[in-house]
Design a protein around this nucleic acid. Structure first.
Lengths: 173, 173
DNA sequence: CAAAACAATTTTAAGCTTGAAATTTCTCGG
DNA sequence: CCGAGAAATTTCAAGCTTAAAATTGTTTTG
């Protein structure tokens, strides 16, 4: 453990630690990635479970409605796809179902008939607001063991990670 | 922004901040969750993409083989399912395909014929090792923007989050 | 203006994932 | 030993997800 790049707490483990690493030793990064993945998996499955139990809904549907909530005039399909970081074909299916169930309506832009615009119906908005309130409570409870300060540190470190990942993606593009 | 529970860096934002929050204001937690989810989604989709491109494989298959790698005598299906945090039925499908392709072999425990034991074949192990080496490089590159210290901090904060989540799950069980 | 290029979306084929129901096999109390 | 119940796994139905190909519509250019 002592030879990991990202060793935990003890600050007295100095820079020499690095020199002890075998070339290509990526254990620290792997452990960090695994922990990150575990955290988000735990939270995500709990949210999915509760959305299903309390609202007979799913996370993708919730996410789609969340994107639409702050766009009273609707949003173009492609824009939704980008924001949700999922494939366009995926959006097609989700929108189909949510339109059938009366949560969304879709319009073809008159000036460019390739473009589909979707928006929440009043019913969809009301349903979403119920779910969003409960969702916020669930997250709050799941994160309750973190103090404000700890949460702030986590926010900052995740921001750095995000930058690191985006930089790597750009490098390898 | 200043009223968020998990405000970022400025340490001079004192405890009074909390008093300003409306009851049921969970914005800070939500933003933290969103950022966590963004990070893991970004990393995860990149890993999926590369596994597909370089090895024509998938993340679930890789994860399954990873579980098996340190169990030379094989592992019981149920144990794999628990460790991977996925449903038992899911494992059935994955194992079917990986057995067909020669990466795994499965045995029924003679003393309890309900129990299936799976293990990597030599071929499967060789394939996994190739993938694991590349996987480690990818992660290392994606995380390269974090210093050892920052990585350590992130590890620690994620450990706290994990404890918080597990505690919440236990409370609501 | 026609053809090519481009853009937005949908379709398709394949695989992953889940919860619930079903199946098979064991275990244990009587 | 027998039957109830528990345990391990599989099956099933439904939904999510993706990449790639196809479709439809618009724009640019020779």
């Amino acid at each position: 453990m002592g030879e990991d790049k990202f060793d935990t707490s003890p600050e007295w483990v100095d820079g020499e630690t690095k020199a002890l690493e075998a070339p290509g030793d990526h254990r620290a990064e792997l452990r960090l990635w695994l922990r990150l993945l575990t955290c988000s998996t735990l939270v995500e499955s709990e949210i999915r479970r509760r959305l299903r139990e309390e609202f007979d809904s799913t996370l993708p549907r919730f996410d789609l409605m969340a994107q639409l909530e702050r766009a009273p005039d609707g949003m173009v399909l492609g824009e939704v796809s980008k924001r949700m970081m999922v494939s366009p074909g995926n959006i097609t299916v989700l929108v189909e179902r949510l339109t059938e169930s009366g949560h969304l309506n879709r319009t073809t832009l008159p000036t460019d008939r390739r473009v589909q615009i979707i928006a929440l119906t009043p019913f969809g908005r009301a349903e979403f607001e119920k779910m969003a309130a409960r969702h916020a409570d669930w997250i709050s409870d799941l994160f309750a063991g973190l103090s404000a300060k700890e949460g702030g540190v986590l926010m900052d470190e995740l921001a750095k990670l995000k930058r690191s990942v985006i930089a790597s993606l750009a490098r390898n593009a």
